[in-house]
């Protein structure tokens, strides 16, 4: 494990905000278990729980907390300077951080979504949801990591994207769905395990290409911005 990975992971799990990750996945599992035990038809509870809560809330919020935590938190408290005063090419800082963010988010979301997917339909759906979520976690992490470097308020802007763009506009303005990580994840999961519970709004090639473009493009942007990282000016 690289030293950057190690420090990033220690920093992520060492901060209290990490505890914010636990309730949402727990709610997802609890709802799925509750609906199943009450004998509710999966066709009724499946879409709101799997998509409405799992893919539209749990995945982006977990990715937001983690993605802004791996670099944004270090920029906030100034510890990033310790990593930056090293003769490391900047990609060797960004890529391990992206890997930690994607890995932690993917695992945190995979556990509840697999449980919910299995209860709703089949093991295949559970695994498909987890795999598509992992790809979504990569896109989201690249986005939130890049946001940490282009703005001082990455959490706020991230929330605006998730809540306004994906949540609100995605529901009423169909065109915005093309640029929605959430929709790509739904499309990819539906392709891996076709089911009535998921409704794809974009085509598979579009979802695949855009996920790749976002992940790669924003990572390159983050690396370039980290090269020009400026410490905030203190002109009193």
């Amino acid at each position: 494990m690289s030293t950057v990975t190690w420090i990033t992971a220690r920093g992520l799990f060492g901060r209290r905000r990490f505890l914010m990750l636990l309730p949402l996945p727990a709610v997802l599992v609890a709802l799925a278990v509750l609906c199943t035990s009450l004998g509710v038809d999966p066709r009724e509870w499946g879409p709101p729980v799997l998509v409405g809560l799992g893919l539209a809330v749990v995945l982006p919020v977990v990715a937001l907390v983690v993605g802004t935590g791996v670099l944004g938190a270090e920029i906030d408290d100034g510890t990033v300077v310790h990593v930056l005063t090293k003769p490391l090419p900047r990609w060797q800082i960004v890529l391990p951080k992206l890997a930690v963010a994607t890995g932690v988010s993917a695992v945190t979301v995979a556990v509840p979504i697999v449980v919910a997917g299995v209860l709703a339909d089949s093991v295949r759906l559970g695994v498909a949801l987890a795999a598509a979520s992992a790809l979504g976690a990569l896109a989201y992490s690249a986005l939130f990591l890049a946001l940490s470097l282009v703005t001082r308020r990455p959490v706020l802007l991230g929330l605006v994207y998730v809540l306004i763009w994906e949540g609100l506009l995605g529901r009423f303005v169909s065109g915005t769905r093309v640029l929605s990580v959430q929709q790509w994840v739904i499309t990819l999961a539906d392709r891996l395990a076709p089911t009535d519970l998921l409704t794809a709004a974009v085509s598979v090639p579009v979802a695949a290409v855009l996920t790749t473009l976002v992940a790669v493009g924003l990572t390159i942007l983050a690396i370039d911005r980290l090269r020009s990282f400026s410490v905030a000016g203190e002109t009193s």
Binding site: P87, P89, S228
Partner: peptide, 23 residues
């Protein structure tokens, strides 16, 4: 500026008291 290899010869102790408190 924009030249990380200089840190082989350069050390910085910034004013801001920023340390990884968990280490």
């Amino acid at each position: 500026w924009r030249n990380p290899p200089v840190y082989r010869r350069l050390g910085l102790v910034s004013e801001r008291e920023a340390v990884h408190t968990f280490l």
